[in-house]
Design a protein around this nucleic acid. Structure first.
Lengths: 224, 224
DNA sequence: GCCTGCCGACTGAACGCTCGCTCATACACC
DNA sequence: GGTGTATGAGCGAGCGTTCAGTCGGCAGGC
């Protein structure tokens, strides 16, 4: 969990400890331990004692750095989203220097998702367990990540790499790409029977590129 | 919850009560009550007492029809999947009589998903809480639903309605359609800001149809 | 019609246990 | 000695689950 370089909201969670550096250090221990356990057993089945143990702390100490188990879940979600955002940012940056920009963007992003499978699943499963306050915070990050794709695709349209589609269509394409990444994580148990990640990437990429080729003035919602 | 007409695995869950009809009746009460509460508060935050109360039963009685809270979760997932499968089956059947078959299939399916938003979210969130035994049972149903789309698309290829694509591509298309339905449910908080269900349907449909138009001999995985 | 005995669905107080969280105490450093 | 961090036994609310007991209804004997 190396959530540097991207803004997180962890600082909004109160702590008893005054040494700021120490807070960061201990919280990383705690979050790392918690992520592992949550992935393995889920939030509700994991006890705070287990987390403390895995983080090499006593329960007492744990509660010096965190006000409640729910806060801890928020720290976990925040860290994962941070990592995700960092990954996506880098992926998009790397891709923009390449020849086939869109294909590379998709590829890089899907590879990030492939690495973060467990984390993505965790987010889908446990976001609901957050207090409303933290949940909206987490969803904001999700919006931000999708936003990166909005921008990237619109830029490609402006640059003439993609045909000049209408805004709703482009935005939905961004949504689709984001979700296809999640889909690989959420349905890996099913998809991985039939496809390797590389096959998955090239098939989905082909689908998108084809859809641009075929896009002319076909009235949507009729014929097949 | 009207899970008639489709096979469910509810009969695999043991009960103390001998009258078969009564078991069906009471379990429907229980499942209906549980679905509502689970959607509202999640599985873990809902107590068995609450479920019993909402189902107009005593806790004692509840446990005559169910061996554990986890079994009850399975009954819920099973019922939802049953309803889903029934919906999909009907949707595909209705669509096959229409003119633009594929577009109609998508439309009908998405409308089913739109109605079942809460249930879909529930499944994504709580399937992990099932004991392994029941989880595989639930996933089997998911495979079956996706299978319906596999068949439907392959049939359209055979009939020449769709171009003769390779099997992996067609199967992935089926996956995509299934997941787009789920996506509408899972990201409704985001998507519904920008699209109505009808816009969502026509945009996604256009994307698919275009991808067929554009599909010729484009080597997948290169260029953009 | 009435009594009796049995069946089986139903009830809810009570049990045992888990788990989030606290706090009195100890320790380390200045 | 004062400040700040670490410890872990202990607390108690809340939960899933059980079980001794209730009660309506039905079959059969008279």
């Amino acid at each position: 969990m190396a959530s540097n370089s991207v803004q997180t909201a962890a600082h909004k969670v109160p702590t008893q400890v005054k040494d700021h550096k120490l807070v960061q250090l201990r919280r990383r221990q705690i979050v790392d331990a918690a992520v592992g356990l949550f992935v393995q057993k889920g939030f509700h089945r994991t006890t705070t004692r287990e987390i403390a143990k895995a983080a090499n702390l006593s329960i007492g100490s744990l509660y010096e750095y965190v006000t409640s188990k729910e806060d801890l879940l928020f720290l976990v979600c925040d860290a994962i989203h941070g990592e995700m955002e960092a990954g996506v940012t880098q992926a998009l940056a790397r891709a923009h220097t390449a020849a086939g920009v869109l294909a590379e963007m998709i590829r890089e992003y899907f590879l990030v998702c492939d690495c973060m499978t467990d984390h993505i699943v965790l987010i889908y499963q446990e976001t609901q367990s957050l207090p409303r306050k933290w949940r909206t915070e987490v969803l904001k990050t999700e919006v931000r990540v999708t936003g990166r794709f909005f921008e990237a695709l619109h830029r490609l349209c402006d640059e003439g790499v993609l045909p000049p589609l209408e805004k709703p269509a482009v935005d939905l394409m961004a949504h689709n790409i984001v979700v296809w990444g999640h889909m690989w994580a959420l349905r890996r148990w099913f998809l991985a029977r039939q496809y390797s990640i590389d096959q998955y990437i090239s098939l989905q990429t082909a689908l998108i590129l084809n859809s641009f080729n075929g896009a002319s003035s076909s009235a949507p919602g009729s014929q097949a």
